[in-house]
Simulated scan of single mutants.
Amino acid sequence: MADAPQIGKRPFLKSDPAPETGEGLSVCPGIGLKHTFDPNTPNLRQELVSGWGPVLAVWEGYSADDEIRLSASSGGAATALSLFCLEQEGNGQVVHTAADPSAPYLNKTVMSRSREDLLRATGSRYAPSSPCEGLTDVLDQPTPSVFVGKPCDVAGAYKARKNRPDLDGKIGITIAFFCAGVPSTAGNLELAKRRGAKSSSSIQSLRYRGNGWPGLWSLVYKKDDGKTEKSEMTYAESWGFLQQYRQWRCYICPDHTGEFADIAVGDPWYRPVQPGEPGKSLIVARTQRGLETIKKAAAAGYIVLETEDPDLLPRSQPNLLETRGALWARLITLKLFGAATPVYSGFGLARFWFSELSLIAKIRSFSGTVKRVFKKGLTKRIEPSES
């Protein structure tokens, strides 16, 4: 995987010509996703399935480790659960994403094996990442691994595990974090430039959230005179700029809350965050394995579970059902114009187009996609470049 700066992470062939097995394409979440969970799973919240995928339980909680809680983007639940799996569940490493030390505006896939490793990688990374490239290394480990990533990353790992029993046995548990889309490297560099960093090489560090809830976008860069300067923005300000650089794939994604993971975590946005309030996490158990892990982590003192209420999920993401409905129209429009169209099964898209969108929104869901088909050249093959 390599970074195409104007788009995002893309696979590039190591050699040309290279043998084509079709395995990579078969597990790509971008060409299609299908829910295969058992509808009779114990504790499954049937009222949430059509809009939110499999949900067994939902809590508001946080890491019992104050340092992890402060450093993390919200309540540190993903880090705390990963640490529990390392120290108590026999998992030898966590495959996830961290800032690239040699280029802090980029991400790299890492394997963490200790609390210190995990702490160095806390905080959201609103830049292209591809933790699935670490799955090959997972096969070489003597112990199972925790896999942490965006919903699409976890869905890709899910499909790969279906194809590869040897890989399935090497993944102990999967944790997804909620995602509204990934801005490109070009977008990140443009924001950094506007805040003072004239070149990518001048960037010393770039942090998007954390050290408070939701935390600040924080850039450290070197000026022309060699002195170090720091620039900060609120999360709302930085995301308001970066979101316009999301790739098209993010606009046709059916899963923003980690529906293929064992555990999904996000922000409990159902209420305003008070100034200085310690971070909180929304913690969603999506499988029996995930449910058992959450309960054991709480009993062992790694996480604190406060309110348990399945309604916290839709209340925290009030716009996602409308987004799901609009996706149905986007996919139909793409197909009508002969553009590449993913196939999704088990997401109930049509029902939400009828129930959640106003008449104006229904019209825009079609007309907006037509405009993008031509503006983005979606009917043409794109050859991404690494530079």
Rank of each mutant, 00 (worst) to 15 (best):
A264L: 05
A264N: 03
G266Y: 02
W269D: 15
P272I: 04
V273H: 13
V273D: 12
Q274L: 13
Q274H: 08
Q274I: 02
P275S: 02
P275V: 01
P278A: 05
G279I: 03
K280F: 02
K280T: 12
K280R: 15
L282M: 05
I283D: 10
V284A: 06
A285T: 07
A285D: 05
R286M: 10
R289M: 11
T293R: 06
T293D: 12
K295N: 14
K295M: 10
K296Q: 07
A297D: 04
A297Y: 02
A299D: 15
A299M: 08
A299W: 01
A299I: 12
A300P: 08
A300C: 09
A300R: 12
Y302L: 01
I303F: 00
V304M: 11
D309R: 13
P310T: 10
P310C: 06
P310F: 06
D311K: 11
D311A: 11
L312H: 08
L312W: 13
P314L: 01
P318C: 10
N319P: 09
N319Y: 13
L320T: 04
L320A: 00
L321Q: 10
E322C: 10
T323C: 12
G325T: 06
A326E: 08
L327D: 03
L327W: 04
A329T: 05
L331T: 00
I332N: 12
I332L: 15
K335I: 00
L336G: 00
L336Y: 08
G338Q: 07
A339L: 14
A339T: 00
A339N: 08
T341N: 03
T341R: 03
T341G: 01
P342T: 07
V343M: 08
S345T: 14
G348L: 08
G348I: 09
